[in-house]
């Protein structure tokens, strides 16, 4: 995902709400918000009004406009509302994003170089691979909490987990126009399992100083608790308080899916005639995945019924 700035999110939010903020002074905008949206933003007591806002602290003080900046009330209310939306979507990457003749050249050249053969394209067609793109929240919790967002991508046809970032802005909403979609070999549950295995693996390799510190603190508090109960005979209370302490102070990582999208990414299929040096000819079907820049033999791909 590209770098995200607060103004980008705010203006995109207003655009999607079909509102157009007007810049009344340099750096100060105003937009008329109706009752319904205002209630969504500020709770049921709120009423529609003209919202004047700015991203600059000085301008906010000078003109009394609402400040939309890191941590401000307004950015929080907007983010909260946005986050309640769209837990699931689907989109496809149009094949037109790619320059097919270049791909064709690349495929034939690469195969030719590998086997020292000559390769000719007989036919070509287009197929889409289905992916599950997850927005995952990873929270590191002790007495404090820090959240990270990770966006792993799982190819549902191959079950492979890909960790590169996808050019989301190039995608179009909905299913692809073509019905040629690779058959899923991985269930959603399997995909999710591989996602959380991957994330668990990642967090276990991360710097765990925070957890070590929390454990030290927990140990210290636990010994104090033990000392307190030296004089008490109430075993049940001691156990209760110990449980409460562990629940409160032990370090944990919480992994949670926030939202997911089913993505369709084109796969270029080529039926090729390969002529080896000894004159032997063979026909092969190759799939080229432009996202991972990989070639695959047809045996692994089947068309959907």
């Amino acid at each position: 995902m590209r770098d995200i700035s607060i103004p980008d999110v705010v203006f995109e939010f207003f655009r999607l709400c079909k509102l157009e903020p007007l810049e009344i002074r340099k750096g100060v905008w105003q937009v008329q918000i109706d009752d319904v949206l205002m209630k969504e933003l500020d709770g049921w007591r709120a009423k529609g009004r003209l919202l004047q806002f700015t991203f600059d602290k000085k301008l906010a003080e000078t003109y009394g406009a609402e400040l939309i900046g890191p941590g401000s009330y307004r950015i929080n209310s907007i983010l909260e509302l946005i986050r309640k939306q769209a837990t699931l979507s689907h989109a496809y990457l149009p094949h037109t994003v790619f320059h097919e003749p270049s791909i064709r050249r690349k495929v034939t050249q690469r195969l030719g170089d590998e086997r020292a053969s000559k390769v000719y394209v007989l036919t070509n067609s287009l197929l889409y691979d289905e992916y599950l793109w997850m927005v995952m929240s990873i929270s590191f919790v002790t007495h404090q909490k820090e959240e990270q967002i990770q966006t792993p991508l799982v190819n549902l046809a191959s079950g492979k987990l890909l960790s590169f970032s996808i050019p989301t802005h190039l995608f179009c909403s909905g299913r692809p126009p073509s019905e040629n979609i690779s058959r899923r070999k991985t269930t959603y549950k399997q995909a999710y399992t591989s996602v959380y295995h991957h994330l668990t693996q990642e967090v276990s390799l991360m710097d765990s100083t925070w957890a070590a510190e929390a454990l030290d603190r927990l140990q210290e508090e636990r010994s104090k608790l033990e000392a307190y109960y030296e004089d008490h005979l109430d075993e049940q209370k001691r156990a209760e308080k110990t449980r409460e302490l562990i629940k409160r102070a032990s370090p944990k990582v919480q992994i949670r899916a926030i939202r997911g999208a089913v993505l369709y990414i084109p796969l270029f299929q080529y039926r090729l005639m390969e002529v080896l040096k000894n004159g032997q000819e063979s026909i092969r079907t190759i799939y080229y995945d432009p996202v991972s820049n990989s070639l695959e033999e047809a045996a692994t791909k089947t068309r959907p019924d």
């Binding site: 946005i82 966006t151 909403s173």
Partner: peptide, 29 residues
Amino acid sequence: IVSQIRKKQFDTWDWFLLAAQADHLSASQ
């Protein structure tokens, strides 16, 4: 999420992307 996939309750890609961006911003705060 899976139950939504089965019911084909898909939201538009624009809202989804914005929501994902909001997730990143919220976490960064």
